[in-house]
Nucleic acid binder design. Structure first.
Length: 219
DNA sequence: AAAACGGGGGC
DNA sequence: GCCCCAGTTTT
């Protein structure tokens, strides 16, 4: 039973592993693999801050915030107004402040002030969608998952690794197709590739190491 | 499925 | 000035 399925997948997706290996090799010097787990709560908060916001702003604002509060208990004590001021510099700072405080209170009241290590529980927190929940699972708890953002979604479709309409479909498709040992690198590498080469508009295809294998599908 | 939330930085 | 940005929630 297993053999038939594996054979089918290998035949249908012959190019997928070469593409992924090519991208990983190409970007091996420009991203840092996560070697140790970070505090899951800090991962959660900085991930909420990062939504639709550039990395540089995210890092600056997160560092400033964690100087003031870095645990659910400390965060829940913060008046919303105070948190909003701390979050200025990241976009959507009013929404994000509400979400962070509400999530922290839920952690205190329902999880003893600790982060749950279950995807479904994380998804119940305000401000947490599939992407954020998966990031926490991977970078907070070291569990295998594929966080899919706009870069991963766009590039997976352009390359022809998947043909999907939503990031959620992309996540499920990639989990079926990509061997688990590539999951962590896949996310980091595709984000980097999306920022530098395979940009949303005017991609630099001549500089892309995977151009020969690319389907160049438009989204 | 589409709109709303939104300030900051690059060009 | 105009456009984009490691999404999520609401309509």
């Amino acid at each position: 039973m297993n053999i038939r399925i594996i054979t089918q997948n290998n035949t249908a997706n012959k190019q997928i592993l070469p593409i992924i290996r090519t991208l990983i090799k190409f970007h091996k010097d420009s991203y840092t693999p996560v070697s140790r787990q970070a505090d899951p709560y800090k991962v959660l908060v900085s991930c909420i801050i990062s939504q639709r916001t550039r990395d540089e702003q995210t890092d600056k604002v997160s560092a400033r915030l964690f100087n003031v509060a870095s645990t659910p208990a400390e965060m829940a004590e913060l008046p919303v107004r105070r948190l909003e001021k701390l979050l200025v510099g990241a976009g959507f700072y009013r929404t994000k402040a509400r979400h962070i405080i509400a999530a922290s209170k839920i952690l205190l009241e329902q999880h003893g002030g600790k982060m749950p290590d279950e995807f479904d529980e994380l998804m119940k927190l305000p401000g947490v969608g599939r992407k954020t929940a998966n990031i926490v699972m991977v970078f907070g708890f070291g569990r295998p998952a594929i966080p899919v953002d706009t870069h991963v979604h766009r590039i997976s479709n352009r390359l022809g690794i998947v043909r999907t309409k939503t990031p959620e479909e992309t996540e499920f498709a990639l989990i079926k197709i990509v061997p688990r040992r590539y999951w962590l690198a896949l996310n980091a590498v595709m984000v980097r590739h999306g920022q530098t080469i395979c940009r949303p508009v005017s991609p630099k295809c001549p500089e892309c190491p995977a151009e020969r294998m690319c389907m160049k599908r438009n989204l």
